[in-house]
C-alpha cells in the first residue's frame, strides 16, 4: 500500500475512534445521571471498539511515515489520548471496578484529539536527524505513558476527588446542622459517618437508599477517588522519572550534555518535582487530602504547559520536535 493510502486509513481510523469516544462519553454521562446498567455496558463496549480503531490509526500512521508513530506533536497527542483511554479501561474499570467516571475521562480524551486534528495536524513525514535515534523509542514512549497516567490520575481523578470531597463536606455540614446526631431518623447514619469513623465508601454502599439520590451523590465516594488518584500517580511517578533520565541520557548522546535547562527539560523537571511534592504531601500531617490534591492539579497544569506551551511557543532545542 502506498504512503497516501496508509495515511488515509490512519486519518479515517482516527475519526472513527474520536466519534466512538464521543458516543461512549455521552453513554457514560447518561449512566452517571440515570444509572441504567445497559447504557454503561454499551458505552464501555463502544470505548473498547474505538480504542481498537485508535490502535489501527496509530499503527497505520507509522506505516505511512515508515517510522515510529510518535515523531511530532500531532502524533504525540494521538498516542497520549490512546494511552489515557487504555489506562482508564485497565485501571479504573477493570482493576478497581469504578464505573461512573468514564464520561470525564473521555471528555479529556476527545478534547486532546480535537485539538490535535484541528491545530496540530501534519502529514506523515520522516524524522529530522536530531530525533533519529533508538532513544526515541525509549524516552518518548516512557514520557507519553507517564503523561497519560498523570493526566488520568493527577488531572481527571484528582479533579473529581476535589469536587466530590467538597460536596460530601457540604452535605455533612448540612446534615450536622439540620439534625442532632443522636436524635435518629432516616439520615442519622449519614451523620454518624460524617466524623470519619467509618469510610464513606462502606457507608455509601450499604446505605443505598430506596429512593432519592445516594448519599455521596452520583460519583464514587471521595475516599475512593483519592485512593485511585494516588495509585495512578504512584504508578506514573517512576515511569516519569525514567522518562526524564532516559531523556538526559539521550541529550548526552545527541548534544553532549545530559542537562542544559532547555525549556522542555526544565518543565519536565518541574512536573517531576511537583509530583514528588505530592507524594510528600500525602505523607505529611495537615497536607493530606485537599492540599495534596491541589498539588497534583498543579502538576497536571505543569504537564499541560510542558506539552502545549513549550512545544509551540517557547523556543529551545526541543522545539523542532513540535508542530
Amino acid at each position: 500500500m502506498s504512503v497516501a493510502q496508509w495515511a488515509r486509513i490512519s486519518n479515517d481510523a482516527f475519526n472513527v475512534a474520536m466519534f466512538g469516544y464521543v458516543g461512549a462519553m455521552v453513554g457514560y454521562f447518561y449512566y452517571l445521571a440515570f444509572r441504567r446498567e445497559i447504557v454503561w455496558r454499551v458505552a464501555s463496549t463502544v470505548t473498547w471498539i474505538a480504542l481498537g480503531a485508535h490502535v489501527v490509526s496509530v499503527l497505520s500512521r507509522g506505516m505511512a511515515a515508515d517510522r515510529v508513530p510518535w515523531g511530532n506533536l500531532y502524533e504525540y497527542s494521538s498516542m497520549l489520548a490512546l494511552l489515557i483511554v487504555a489506562a482508564y479501561l485497565v485501571i479504573v474499570e477493570w482493576r478497581y471496578k469504578v464505573k461512573s467516571i468514564g464520561g470525564f475521562v473521555l471528555a479529556l480524551v476527545v478534547l486532546t484529539m480535537a485539538v490535535a486534528v484541528s491545530f496540530l495536524y501534519v502529514g506523515p513525514a520522516p524524522l529530522v536527524p536530531a530525533l533519529n535515534s533508538y532513544w526515541i523509542k525509549i524516552h518518548v514512549v516512557a514520557a507519553i505513558v507517564g503523561s497519560s497516567l498523570l493526566a488520568l490520575g493527577g488531572g481527571v481523578l484528582t479533579g473529581l476527588y476535589l469536587y466530590q470531597d467538597r460536596s460530601e463536606r457540604r452535605r455533612d455540614e448540612l446534615a450536622a446542622s439540620g439534625m442532632p446526631p443522636i436524635a435518629g431518623g432516616a439520615t442519622d447514619l449519614d451523620v454518624q459517618s460524617g466524623d470519619g469513623a467509618a469510610p464513606h465508601d462502606l457507608v455509601a454502599d450499604e446505605l443505598e437508599p430506596a429512593s432519592g439520590p445516594r448519599r455521596g451523590g452520583l460519583l464514587p465516594p471521595a475516599s475512593t477517588l483519592d485512593r485511585l488518584a494516588y495509585r495512578t500517580i504512584a504508578f506514573a511517578f517512576p515511569i516519569w522519572t525514567f522518562a526524564v533520565i532516559a531523556g538526559a541520557i539521550w541529550a548526552q548522546e545527541a548534544w553532549g550534555r545530559y542537562w542544559g535547562w532547555d525549556p522542555k527539560e526544565t518543565w519536565s523537571f518541574i512536573v517531576w518535582v511537583v509530583y514528588a511534592g505530592y507524594l510528600h504531601a500525602r505523607a505529611t500531617a495537615g497536607w493530606k487530602g485537599r492540599r495534596a490534591a491541589t498539588i497534583a492539579l498543579i502538576g497536571f497544569a505543569a504537564l499541560l504547559v510542558n506539552y502545549y506551551v513549550v512545544n509551540t511557543v517557547v523556543s529551545g532545542l526541543h522545539s523542532y520536535s513540535g508542530v
Partner: peptide
C-alpha cells in the same frame, strides 16, 4: 517533612 515539601514546591 513540611519543610521538604515546601522546598520542593
Amino acid at each position: 517533612m513540611r519543610t521538604a515539601l515546601i522546598l520542593l514546591l
